[in-house]
Design a protein around this nucleic acid. Sequence first.
DNA 1: CAAGTGACGTAGA
DNA 2: GTCTACGCCACTT
Length: 106
Amino acid sequence: MNQRDRILAAVREIPAGRVASYGDVARLAGMPRGARQVGWALASLAGSEDEDTPWWRVVNCEGRFSLPLLGALEQARRLKAEGIDVSDAGVVDLPRTRWDGEVPMA
DNA sequence: CAAGTGACGTAGA
DNA sequence: GTCTACGCCACTT
């Protein structure tokens, strides 16, 4: 199991309708300081046909998209499709939609 | 091995 | 609200 796979596994744990920050995903993957690696792992999915990994549910600590414009648009589109409210500025309301981790509806 | 780079995070101005 | 600086870890050169 590579670190990349652990990250992707953590991302797949994010329930629909919720989002998690890079730091959160990194923590779940066992890399408290590996937020950048999360981005790296997700970047390898970009453009991929990997529909099993909801990379679009991953945002930065501010609930904003760190992707290039085009990718951010795609992400915002998918998030809205899941019922996540995304402002026109492309910001997610973290306090409301952020996933605490492993306990979605607790 | 060293340096540069990146879909990040935190703290300070 | 904005931007800068530094720390972080994996990858590439």
